[in-house]
């Protein structure tokens, strides 16, 4: 009996210690991310005068790898979501004989919700993992140390371009995804229930407000911060070998997607 109690006590204290350790790691993670954001903006503004300028060509390179290269898959997925929502909307509204109102459903849900969320998840899977593996392998190969001893701040060379690249490319991708999704919905709706293109877009524009667009833009910026920082912080945390790098890459995707969904839910609840 005493031995059993001992074992339970041991297990309980171990769990509490694990929770405490997890909490400390989470706080350290947030602290490091906050520091990277601060340093990136500091170097963007003060960098040129202290010999650490954030180079435009590096940011453009990040826009290309993180944004433009994601464009085909984002457009394809957004268009598919637009068609799926149209199918589902028409099917549900037909019960009430109101299938022509499907355009309002799309106008209310795509810019505010689906376009930022789907784009965020796709970019997290693509760019978040790529960032984690790139930064992680740079760390393992000693490239980050090499930059430091060359007098090049790794924040301005790696972190800031990735962060600003995503902050520019993700809102653009979300805008494109919104248009692609609504456009694909329009094609399906015209083909099935015969709403003309002009009437469709007039309905959409009459419903979508500036607040919806601000919501869409705000979420894309928030997701860009999450994807860039989770990828980079997880990459910087890599030490050991290739196996750890693989784990960090996978973990960064899962964490990014989880963080995007959690942040999205929070935004919906609060705004």
């Amino acid at each position: 009996m005493e031995q059993r109690l001992d074992r339970i006590a041991q297990r309980t204290t171990r769990r509490i210690a694990d929770i405490g350790l997890g909490l400390i790691q989470a706080i350290a993670f947030v602290g490091q991310a906050a520091r990277l954001i601060f340093d990136s903006f500091y170097l963007l503004i003060r960098g040129p005068s202290i010999g650490q300028p954030v180079r435009l060509r590096h940011v453009v390179q990040e826009i290309i790898t993180g944004g433009i290269q994601s464009l085909p898959v984002v457009v394809l997925m957004a268009a598919t979501i637009g068609v799926m929502l149209s199918i589902q909307g028409i099917h549900s509204l037909r019960i009430f004989g109101a299938e022509t109102q499907v355009t309002f459903g799309l106008a209310l849900s795509i810019p505010r919700e689906f376009a930022p969320l789907i784009t965020g998840i796709i970019v997290a899977g693509r760019s978040g993992s790529q960032l984690a593996s790139r930064v992680g392998s740079m760390r393992l190969n000693g490239e980050i140390d090499a930059l430091t001893v060359m007098g090049i701040s790794p924040v301005r060379f790696i972190v800031a371009p990735a962060l600003f690249g995503l902050l520019i490319s993700l809102p653009i991708l979300v805008a494109v995804a919104t248009v692609a999704s609504l456009g694909a919905g329009q094609l399906y709706i015209e083909a099935t229930i015969g709403i003309a293109s002009q009437a469709y877009w007039a309905d959409i524009l009459s419903v979508v407000t500036m607040e919806d667009l601000a919501h869409c833009f705000g979420k894309s910026v928030l997701f860009a911060f999450l994807i860039a920082l989770i990828g980079i912080v997880m990459g910087l945390g890599v030490s050991g070998g290739a196996e750890v790098l693989g784990r960090a890459t996978t973990s960064s995707v899962v964490t990014c997607i989880g963080a995007i969904i959690a942040a999205d839910t929070l935004v919906i609840l609060l705004l």
Partner: peptide, 23 residues
């Protein structure tokens, strides 16, 4: 400060064991 240190490091050269070239 860190920025001052980076400035000082510009005056030295380091060749790492693995090379540490940017891949």
């Amino acid at each position: 400060s860190e920025n001052e240190r980076l400035k000082l490091l510009k005056g030295i050269g380091v060749a790492f064991q693995s090379g540490a070239l940017l891949s």
